[in-house]
Design a protein around this nucleic acid. Structure first.
Lengths: 184, 184
DNA sequence: TTTTTTGGGTCAGCCATATTGACTTAATAT
DNA sequence: ATATTAAGTCAATATGGCTGACCCAAAAAA
């Protein structure tokens, strides 16, 4: 599948690529949109949602790991993280192993909000999966994985859609949805 | 495919949905990222890119049509549109049919920038398509279409991935990538 | 042990992008 | 003649990014 001569047979012409650009724009707009109302009720924005998501996904995550995943600066994170901690959605406690690190976890309140945010987005994804054929889901996964440039981010997703051997993380197991790796 | 009992057989469990949430986050982050450097060279941001894209896609588009597609307010658009017009990337001329409307088009300079922005994103999509199997592309399209909530936006994409009859726009032709519809 | 590096936090200021509400103008529709 | 529409503008505000400059404490390296 790495043969560039195959384009014509794959319908990988201008038009198909142009269409994909718009699909990404509209799909992402609506995907984020379904959580916005819920966030607004709490006076939060998408930045808060991302923190809730990744902390919920990897309890005990450190601030610097979170920064690396979000690709924002410490100063940008601190504003939203401070609000989440002060309002009791996230706890930050000193690590036992390395007292410089703060381990972030969701409180029950934070978990509850995150659950409701995740449900809104997952309901949308479920309906998209239901409208497509069963086989579409795997194709969707593979293309989305290919769009992720950073190998360490790709490595969060294991199972199918193998990357070229040269780019694979040999320690990535064969399970599902590998938790966050300590990195950077 | 609308039977909710089919979930187990489709692997539509919690985990698959959770994974899709993250795929969308990472893929969109990197998809937009590839255009950012180029935009920054011109002192532009993503808002400018979106205007260049949709005006390039539908020359003669009016301001209110553009507003409806972007889902932002007139005030938000006016700043970026003014810059694009003043710097010679976009032309705004009074419509012959309705003198209230302004028809927006790209200048050669604007088309050139838009071409380069589109190429950066299309190269990424192409590489994602190449890493996947040929059949994945159609699955990707179908799932992405299902994520688009607004029927009028879905109607921009014709060909495969039929929606339920009840939700289809009967006037949507069978060609590829239908241009913007006048609406709202 | 002294020094350097790392993880975290903070201050100040800036920029881009979005919002609401109010108002004007001109052109079209009723 | 009046109402509606399309576009533009003003002012004020919020959010979420950024840079640069610091500080502290803990851990790692010299």
């Amino acid at each position: 599948m790495a043969d560039p001569k195959k384009h014509a047979s794959l319908f990988l012409h201008e038009d198909s690529l142009h269409e994909a650009v718009e699909l990404l724009f509209f799909a992402y707009r609506d995907f984020t949109g379904v959580a916005d109302a819920l966030l607004a009720e709490h006076g939060f924005g998408r930045a808060h949602h991302r923190v809730l998501h990744f902390v919920g996904q990897s309890p005990g995550l450190s601030v610097s790991e979170l920064l690396a995943t979000l690709r924002i600066t410490k100063q940008s994170l601190s504003r939203v993280l401070k609000q989440l901690v002060e309002q009791g959605y996230v706890t930050s406690k000193v690590s036992g192993l390395d007292a410089r690190r703060r381990e972030l976890t969701l409180t029950d309140k934070g978990q509850d909000l995150q659950d409701r945010l995740a449900k809104a987005q997952q309901d949308l994804i479920l309906s998209a999966y239901e409208q497509a054929e069963a086989s579409s889901v795997d194709g969707f996964r593979k293309v989305m994985l290919g769009l992720i440039q950073e190998p360490l981010d790709r490595a969060r997703f294991s199972a199918s859609a193998p990357q070229p051997r040269s780019a694979r993380n040999p320690s990535a197991g064969a399970g599902t949805h590998r938790p966050l790796d300590p990195r950077r």
